[in-house]
């Protein structure tokens, strides 16, 4: 194992050891996706029986939307929360004077976030199948692209939050739970972008999620992969990730100049 991989594994081990000892943290991982799925699943069930429209549109799109949007939310919270764990345990000082590079720290945070996302969504996916007879795997291989795009979107949103934590310290920790939810109305999870007022539509189209969910509806309703929309999602994710990495690098450098790494937990 290369030295870089071993350091990344060290950080993954640190978080896995923590979860092994803390059932409330494990419960938190599966709690929200399951709860969201239950609320929206029953709502979808109601619509399926009340609406004259195709059931796949009224029910399937809602459930698939909930499950896929949770990928973004869990990915973002997974990264931000794992970074906050280091602040809360006053461990950042040790990490930043070890040979661990910032890029390796990010790789570990992304890795633990991916694990959290998969573990968190597994029960919700099973419940969707058992309770609502909705099998998200029926979306086909394109599901992997939806998942990957929303995962990456969660990562760059979290990088923005971590950058703000470098700037404002632990006082900005509430952003870890609120920022992604604030994006939800513009992500067009449950409705097409045309539902939004005209002046809001460019904002929504600048988000990869809008294109992913257009693609998801195309896959559900017409059983086709909407490659132009997916291409937009990939391109926008690359652009946003680059901007987030620049922001992270800049704020980390400024934190080292301001002395914020010494007092980040205060």
């Amino acid at each position: 194992m290369s030295q870089a991989l071993r350091r990344i594994w060290g950080m993954l081990y640190r978080h896995l050891a923590m979860y092994r000892r803390s059932w409330p943290r494990v419960l938190e991982i599966v709690y929200w996706p399951t709860l969201e799925l239950l609320v929206w699943g029953f709502t979808a069930n109601y619509f399926m029986h009340a609406s004259a429209g195709p059931p796949a549109l009224t029910g399937g799109a809602l459930i698939a939307g909930v499950l896929l949007w949770e990928v973004m939310l869990r990915a973002q919270i997974g990264v931000a929360l794992s970074f906050l764990e280091e602040i809360w345990s006053r461990n950042l000082g040790h990490l930043f004077v070890s040979p661990l590079r910032p890029a390796e720290l990010l790789a570990a945070l992304f890795g633990i976030s991916l694990l959290r996302t998969v573990v968190g969504l597994l029960p919700a996916t099973i419940i969707a199948y058992l309770l609502y007879h909705f099998n998200i795997l029926h979306l086909g291989p394109v599901l992997l692209l939806f998942f990957a795009n929303l995962l990456v979107m969660g990562f760059w949103v979290a990088l923005g939050i971590v950058s703000l934590l470098f700037r404002y310290g632990a006082g900005a920790e509430a952003l870890a739970w609120t920022v992604a939810f604030g994006i939800t109305p513009f992500a067009c999870v449950f409705y097409p972008v045309t539902v939004l007022p005209g002046w809001l539509q460019p904002l929504a189209r600048a988000l990869p999620a809008e294109h992913v969910f257009q693609g998801m509806r195309a896959a559900l309703l017409h059983h086709v992969a909407d490659w132009p929309q997916l291409s937009w999602a990939v391109g926008l994710n690359i652009l946003w990730m680059l901007l987030a990495l620049i922001a992270f690098g800049r704020e980390f450098r400024l934190a080292r100049i301001r002395g914020a790494l010494i007092a980040i937990g205060e």
């Binding site: 640190r14 923590m18 000892r21």
Partner: peptide, 15 residues
Amino acid sequence: RLSVVENLTVYGHLY
């Protein structure tokens, strides 16, 4: 939250 041996293992990997 980590045990002593887990903490030392983490830093052993980092170093």
